[in-house]
Amino acid sequence: QVTTFLDESAANDQTHTYTIQAVTAVGNSSNGNTTQAAPGTAKVPTAPTVGAPSPGDTVSLAPTLIVNNAVPVPGDTSRATLRYAFQLSSESDFATLTASITDVTSGDPGNPTHWQVADMGRPGVTILEDGTTYWWRARADDGDFSGDWSAGGTFVASTSQPTGITLAAFSAASVRGKVTIDWRMGGGQEGSGFHVLRSLTATGGFERISTEIITADEEGYTYLDRDVRSNVKYHYMLESVTTGERFGPLAVRVDPPGQFSLSQNAPNPFNPTTSIRYELPNTVQVTLKVYNLLGQEVRLLVNARQEAGFHTIIWNGRNVAGRSVSSGVYFYRIEAGEFTKAKRMLLLK
């Protein structure tokens, strides 16, 4: 059995000496070895700083609290991963907590460390009161020790601010080497812009992949993720620009092609560049060459063993010597395992 003792009265940057004394039931005692320790603020994670809301902001009854990450203890990789605790109170000294949470995953610039104040056991039920001022703070834990609390942030909760966006639909599907994400808001709600976040795990590491705010059309919202690989599972979340709420995650695996294929180049006709797309259902050696009307090889575009998936190569209209070729009809031909196919294309200058 391991017995531990936490000395919360030790002063920082001073050496303290400790001895463990064992005492029997009849009062006999003996001292163990002596050890020394010098606690210090540099030996625990730094305090995070308040990100949003800004002090005194008026927010919804379900605000998202954001902190700028703490700095872990330098030189100790075993303590480099931080998790966070948040506390919320209607009292500035936090004597009574309105809500709290621990073990919040550390965020990153695309998806900062955050906590949306909500009762997870009662979805849709708010725990804050209209017109009340609240104080909140956060601290980091590295698995061994917790750092100091951040300086307290404040906000006023108000029903005048939008809260509680609901989604009527949220889906993601793999379609020919891309992931299509579709969602609709529930009826009777004002429109909201969204960002899409993505991660390789469901538990954290989400990064924003949308570069612009996504707005709705008549059918709802759609985002097309082209930067994906076959046989990889991706996790997606939505983030409301209006309220900061996040929805998801939703997982989808990108399916590989069902068969070999070679698509028509695009654009066609072209000048000076064109894209050639091909699909591989499994890993094979691939060669893709461009020929002129005389059957002479003009350019070797691909000569490599490639994974299953959807591939695109660009031809810039130049030959193997790097010179621009003349206008005319050219052929491109692929060999992938036992699969071969050729198509024609037209360069017009």
Results as ranks from 00 to 15, higher is better:
residue 292 N to S: 11
residue 342 A to Q: 11
residue 253 R to A: 14
residue 182 D to K: 14
residue 201 T to L: 10
residue 280 L to S: 01
residue 256 P to Y: 08
residue 15 T to P: 06
residue 245 E to F: 10
residue 337 G to Y: 10
residue 144 D to F: 14
residue 116 Q to M: 15
residue 13 D to C: 07
residue 72 P to N: 08
residue 310 F to A: 05
residue 14 Q to W: 13
residue 77 T to E: 08
residue 28 N to C: 15
residue 149 W to E: 01
residue 199 S to T: 13
residue 48 P to G: 07
residue 113 T to D: 03
residue 215 T to M: 07
residue 95 A to T: 11
residue 307 E to K: 13
residue 196 V to D: 00
residue 292 N to M: 12
residue 283 T to E: 01
residue 197 L to Q: 04
residue 63 P to M: 09
residue 172 A to E: 01
residue 177 G to I: 07
residue 346 L to S: 10
residue 162 P to H: 06
residue 229 R to D: 13
residue 224 L to Q: 06
residue 20 I to F: 12
residue 322 G to P: 08
residue 152 G to D: 10
residue 190 E to Y: 13
residue 284 V to E: 02
residue 96 T to A: 15
residue 278 Y to P: 00
residue 27 G to H: 08
residue 207 E to F: 06
residue 32 G to V: 10
residue 302 V to C: 06
residue 59 V to R: 00
residue 77 T to H: 08
residue 178 K to D: 02
residue 57 D to V: 05
residue 251 A to R: 01
residue 175 V to M: 08
residue 85 A to S: 15
residue 330 Y to C: 12
residue 49 T to K: 12
residue 98 T to W: 06
residue 205 G to K: 13
residue 41 T to G: 05
residue 295 G to V: 04
residue 349 K to Y: 12
residue 168 A to Y: 02
residue 28 N to F: 08
residue 59 V to Y: 00
residue 211 T to C: 05
residue 111 N to C: 14
residue 26 V to S: 13
residue 145 F to D: 08
residue 11 A to E: 14
residue 131 G to N: 07
residue 33 N to C: 09
residue 296 Q to C: 06
residue 63 P to F: 08
residue 156 V to D: 01
residue 88 L to E: 03
residue 186 G to S: 10
residue 243 T to E: 00
residue 83 R to T: 15
residue 155 F to G: 05
residue 299 R to D: 07
residue 305 R to L: 13
residue 173 A to P: 01
residue 245 E to I: 07
residue 32 G to F: 12
residue 265 N to D: 05
residue 275 S to K: 04
residue 282 N to F: 03
residue 242 T to Q: 06
residue 335 E to G: 05
residue 229 R to P: 01
residue 99 A to S: 15
residue 81 T to D: 06
residue 60 S to G: 15
residue 251 A to M: 06
residue 332 Y to L: 06
residue 304 A to N: 12
residue 321 A to H: 13
residue 347 L to S: 02
residue 146 S to V: 08
residue 15 T to E: 15
residue 199 S to Y: 14
residue 244 G to W: 00
residue 136 W to H: 03
residue 233 K to F: 04
residue 13 D to Q: 13
residue 128 L to D: 00
residue 203 T to A: 14
residue 92 S to P: 03
residue 205 G to R: 08
residue 297 E to P: 09
residue 208 R to G: 09
residue 320 V to S: 13
residue 183 W to I: 04
residue 39 P to D: 05
residue 223 Y to D: 03
residue 38 A to W: 02
residue 130 D to R: 10
residue 297 E to L: 14
residue 167 L to Y: 03
residue 285 Q to A: 15
residue 318 R to L: 11
residue 332 Y to S: 06
residue 137 R to M: 09
residue 329 V to M: 14
residue 147 G to Q: 03
residue 284 V to M: 02
residue 176 R to K: 12
residue 209 I to K: 02
residue 238 L to C: 03
residue 208 R to Q: 15
residue 201 T to Q: 11
